[in-house]
Amino acid sequence: FVLGLVLLVFFGGGSFFAWFPQGGLVGDDWDTLGTAAKIKDYLWHMALPVTASVAGNLAVMTVLTKNVFLEEIRRQYVYTARAKGLPERQILWKHVFRNAMIPLVTGFPAAFIGAFFTGSLLIETLFSLDGLGLLSYEAVMKRDYPVVMGTLYVFTLMGLLAKLLSDISYSWVDPRIHFGGQK
């Protein structure tokens, strides 16, 4: 939320740089634009909200990546590969990188969905966007139970799809993993 506020103050319309609009999903002249201009306008309006939503969790993923790589570099097989005389580049890319990517790739889809929905209500409110976070909040406040259940269903479905992507990517990164039994 704080990052979104800082982005809005420095880069939003009517501020220091005024590179991006202050809010809304599309511009006022949306109906008169062509297809390419509509895409450009939409991306221009979404730049600050997406940056505010993603940047906070980027630091967490960066620290996690660093820790996983440092942990893998200290493993016994890396010492063995160095003792065999393998080049450092080959050790890092063929051995360490593959093993270090397993926890990162498998956790990334779920972390992305969590990061996306964690601050969605605040981001939508700050940038004047109509989204699922604001819809679900307003539905809870108005006790509109069908809408609450619908948004909960959509959030749960997206979480389950993230878990499915996580499992698929796990077997893709590490071919030794087989779901469904021994081969």
Score class of each variant (00 low, 15 high):
87 P>K: 11
151 T>W: 03
140 V>L: 05
133 G>E: 11
3 L>K: 03
11 F>S: 03
89 R>Y: 11
126 L>E: 12
155 F>L: 08
153 Y>G: 15
13 G>N: 15
139 A>I: 00
35 T>R: 13
159 G>N: 08
158 M>A: 04
101 M>L: 14
74 R>V: 05
58 L>I: 03
100 A>H: 00
88 E>S: 01
55 A>L: 13
160 L>H: 01
78 V>E: 01
177 I>F: 11
117 F>E: 09
120 S>D: 15
157 L>Y: 15
14 G>P: 08
113 I>T: 10
13 G>E: 15
174 D>N: 07
162 A>R: 01
163 K>W: 11
174 D>M: 06
105 V>I: 12
130 D>E: 12
12 G>F: 00
48 L>C: 01
155 F>E: 03
142 K>P: 10
145 Y>C: 05
76 Q>C: 08
159 G>E: 01
44 W>H: 15
149 M>T: 01
138 E>K: 11
61 M>Q: 12
27 G>A: 04
154 V>K: 13
63 V>N: 14
99 N>D: 00
108 F>L: 14
147 V>C: 05
23 G>T: 05
68 V>H: 09
77 Y>F: 13
71 E>N: 15
74 R>L: 09
65 T>S: 08
77 Y>Q: 06
133 G>V: 08
19 W>V: 06
132 L>V: 11
21 P>D: 01
176 R>C: 04
30 W>D: 11
85 G>N: 04
107 G>Y: 07
162 A>I: 02
28 D>C: 10
180 G>A: 07
57 N>W: 12
157 L>Q: 05
169 S>C: 05
140 V>P: 01
182 Q>R: 14
52 A>N: 07
182 Q>K: 14
154 V>Q: 10
108 F>S: 08
78 V>W: 02
42 Y>S: 14
121 L>Q: 03
50 V>L: 14
174 D>K: 09
59 A>K: 08
45 H>Y: 00
90 Q>P: 04
126 L>C: 10
152 L>P: 02
16 F>Y: 12
139 A>G: 01
72 E>Y: 13
63 V>L: 14
21 P>F: 02
36 A>Y: 01
150 G>F: 06
46 M>I: 13
75 R>T: 12
139 A>C: 12
171 S>Y: 04
146 P>C: 00
32 T>V: 08
65 T>H: 06
80 T>Q: 13
1 F>V: 13
55 A>T: 14
139 A>Q: 00
73 I>P: 00
96 V>Q: 00
106 T>K: 03
62 T>H: 09
48 L>W: 03
171 S>N: 12
172 W>C: 04
125 T>A: 08
92 L>C: 09
141 M>Q: 15
98 R>I: 06
34 G>W: 04
128 S>I: 08
62 T>W: 09
178 H>W: 07
77 Y>E: 05
54 V>T: 07
34 G>E: 05
88 E>N: 06
6 V>S: 07
84 K>R: 08
152 L>E: 04
7 L>M: 02
70 L>H: 13
182 Q>S: 14
109 P>Q: 02
65 T>A: 10
167 D>T: 00
110 A>P: 06
57 N>V: 11
117 F>I: 07
3 L>I: 14
121 L>K: 07
7 L>W: 02
122 L>W: 04
105 V>D: 11
71 E>S: 15
53 S>R: 08
51 T>S: 13
